Amino acid sequence: MTDYKEMYFLLFNKITETILNLQEVQQQAEEMYISQENFLSHIINLSAKE
């Protein structure tokens, strides 16, 4: 007989890990974007002073 409880927990744990990984990658991408925006705005401010 199939052990549905074991299958459910396997699926639930893998889906949870995947969601957490996606959230981590999204946060890293957002931090990269923000740091690039700060860098670009710094360059724009420097060139505006000239």
Rank of each mutant, 00 (worst) to 15 (best):
F39E: 02
Y33C: 01
M7D: 09
A48H: 06
N13K: 11
Q23R: 15
E30W: 08
E50W: 09
N13A: 11
N45T: 12
L20E: 13
Y4E: 04
T16V: 06
T18C: 00
E24F: 06
T16K: 10
Q36A: 13
E30P: 00
E37G: 00
M1F: 08
I43D: 00
K14G: 00
E37R: 13
F9C: 01
A48W: 02
T2I: 12
Y8E: 13
I19G: 00
N38S: 08
S47A: 02
S47T: 02
L22N: 12
E17P: 01
E6R: 08
F12C: 05
I43W: 01
K5S: 09
N38M: 14
A29V: 10
A48R: 07
Q36F: 05
T16C: 03
T18R: 01
I15L: 15
I15M: 14
E31K: 11
M7G: 02
V25C: 03
E17F: 10
M7H: 07
N13Y: 10
Q28W: 05
E24G: 03
N38C: 09
Q23F: 08
E30G: 03
Q36I: 08
N45M: 14
E31D: 05
A48F: 03
E24C: 00
A29T: 10
K5H: 07
N13V: 04
K5T: 05
K14D: 01
M1T: 15
E31A: 08
A48D: 13
I19F: 01
V25L: 09
I43N: 01
K5W: 10
E24D: 11
E31Y: 02
M1N: 14
I43E: 09
V25D: 11
Q36C: 06
Q27L: 04
H42Q: 08
Q26G: 01
L22Q: 07
Y4T: 04
Q36W: 02
I15A: 14
N45L: 15
K14Q: 10
E24Q: 12
E6H: 03
Q26W: 01
Q23H: 12
H42A: 15
E24T: 10
A48K: 10
Q23V: 09
Q26K: 10
S35D: 06
M32L: 13
L10E: 07
L40I: 13
E37L: 13
E30F: 10
E30Q: 15
Y4P: 00
L22E: 06
E37A: 09
N13W: 06
I43C: 05
N38K: 15
E30H: 13
M32G: 07
E31I: 02
Q26D: 06
K49A: 11
I19L: 07
Q36M: 11
K14Y: 00
L40V: 08
T2Q: 04
Q27N: 13
K49Q: 11
M7Q: 13
I44R: 14
M7A: 13
E6V: 02
N38Y: 06
K5N: 10
S47Y: 04
E31V: 03
D3M: 04
Y4M: 08
I44E: 14
L22M: 08
M32S: 11
E24K: 06
Y4F: 12
F9N: 09
N21K: 11
I15H: 05
T2D: 12
T18V: 00
I34V: 10
